[in-house]
Each structure stands twice: as structure tokens, then as C-alpha cells.
Simulated assay, not measured.
Amino acid sequence: MTQPDSDIISLPSEAHAHDHDYHQLVVVLDGNTDFDIQGKGKQLHTGEGCILPSANSHAFAGLGDNQIMVVNLPIPPQKSITDEEYEVVSRLFDQAAYFQLNPRLQILASALSGELQQYPNDSILARACGNTLLSAIRHQMNSKDVRTRGNQLDIDKLDQFIELNLSRRVHIDQLANFCFLSVSQFHERFKDKTGMTPHQYLMRKRLERAQDLLRDGFPPIQVAEMCGFSSQSAMTNVFSQTLNITPLKYQKQFGNR
């Protein structure tokens, strides 16, 4: 069976073990998963992943709701990639490894996964996304500065990540992982820098996007989904408490005409 170049899937909660005759890269986009590669186990969180060389036995299980991106590198290479390109990329799979994406690559992985979900049957896009992520991670793995911890909080990069993921559930531990900080360190530094808690900041971002979409004429029920609210009523409650107006009244008053 021909394997896809890249795909977005959720792992079941039941542990499953197997191996395959192609290399595989796994990146956790959302939630937590358990992985075990030939007896070396690790719990992977958002922004983390693993390199699985062909024929390495591995086991995996999802821990609650989760979403991962898998990129497969067939052996031998497909005709769409030259022997030289294949040789360079395949060096990434010399040995199994766990890794954490730097903030820039977390943004890239999130953007690529969004494209794959938008056009799931586009094999050219799947191949392009897979090759892009493989190459970018190869450069990170070869860099001396693979994991830089304790840096000053970069709000601009964090904003990019938040904007790309507002339609999803965004947890504080995801944002902390993105910044290579513990949750307590992240919370403290974030409040010092912005004057608000991460939760308050996220809610403000959701409300700002909701206002934009409502002004553009999107129906409130669709806006709630696009902005990551659990329901239209949840969005209405936050809207009313914060802005003293319901989404529907806001749209009627400020909507583009």
C-alpha cells in the first residue's frame, strides 16, 4: 500500500504497537500522547515530537483529546524527489530521537496542518507540507541552539501562535511549552510583561477576532466556532460581560453595510 506523505490524525487511547518499512516523523499539534520507541518511553506534549526510522518498533497511545501530524518518507524515494534531496533528508532518520520544536517551527507546523486539514485530498500539497516540515526540522536538529530555555518572553511570536490556533482549544501549558517555560514561570513572566493573565489575554484575542468577524457579517454561531468558544451562548456571555452588548446587537450596530 502506498503511504501518504503527511496526514493529521488523532491517536486512540488504547496502546498500539507496530513497525513499518518507511521513515516517519511525528509532531504533536494538540494534547498529549505516550510514545515508546524500542523500550524508550516518553510522554509528548504540544510542540514535541519524535523521529522514527524504518523498522524501529514503537508503541503509542493518545491521552485524551489529541492531534498529531505524521510525515512519512517512503523507501525507496518517490519519483517526485531527487536522489540527492532524499539523501539529505533521510539523514534525519539515522537514529530514533525525541525533540521539541522551537517557537518558529511550532508556528510553521500549525500553519501546515491547517492547510492539510483544509485540503485533505491534495496529494501535491501533502507532499509539499511534509517536505517543508522535514527540511525545517532537519535544520533545527543540526543547529547548536536546538533548545534555548529561559529566554525573555517573545510576545510577537506568541501572538502569531495564538492567531493561528484561536479556532482551537488553546491551553496555558501549550503556550508555556511554546516558550520553553514551565507553566508557573510562563504565568509569572507573562503577567509581568502584559499586565494580565494568559487566560485574560486569550479571551481578549478571541473577542477581538469575534468583533472583526461579526462586522464582516458572519453569523454569530459560526463566529463562536471560528474564535474557539465552546458554544454561541458562551461567546454571548463573555461578550455581554466584557462589552455590555450581545454579539447580535453588536453586529446590527457595527456591521459593515
Rank of each mutant, 00 (worst) to 15 (best):
Q140N: 06
I137N: 03
Q106M: 11
V26F: 07
L166T: 01
F218P: 00
P247Q: 02
G217P: 02
K252R: 15
P74S: 10
S13I: 09
F229G: 09
R127Q: 13
P12D: 12
G130M: 01
I137Y: 02
A136D: 06
T236Y: 07
H18Y: 09
D19G: 04
N177A: 10
R138G: 07
R215S: 09
V183H: 05
A96W: 04
R209K: 15
L29C: 04
S13K: 08
T246I: 01
H199N: 06
N131V: 12
T2V: 14
Q200E: 10
S57M: 11
Q140A: 06
A210F: 02
Q67R: 11
G31A: 05
R169K: 14
D21T: 06
K42Q: 13
S231D: 09
G64A: 03
K79I: 02
L25Y: 02
G62A: 01
D36I: 06
F186C: 10
F161L: 01
V183D: 14
K42R: 14
H171N: 15
L101S: 05
D212T: 07
M141C: 09
A210T: 02
V71E: 00
V28F: 00
S233A: 08
Q100D: 08
V89G: 03
E14R: 08
N244D: 14
S54I: 05
Q118N: 12
S13F: 01
E208T: 10
I221V: 15
N244I: 08
P53S: 03
I155E: 05
L116V: 12
Q78W: 03
I9R: 06
D5C: 08
G150A: 03
D173M: 04
V26L: 12
Q253R: 14
Q106G: 12
I51P: 00
R204G: 10
R149P: 04
D192G: 05
T246P: 04
Q253D: 12
E48T: 02
A61T: 05
S230Q: 12
K252T: 08
S13C: 06
D65G: 11
R257D: 14
Y98H: 07
G31Q: 04
G47M: 00
L25C: 12
T82Q: 04
R149V: 15
R168D: 08
I124K: 13
D173H: 11
S143H: 08
Q118P: 03
L158S: 04
R91Q: 15
G41W: 15
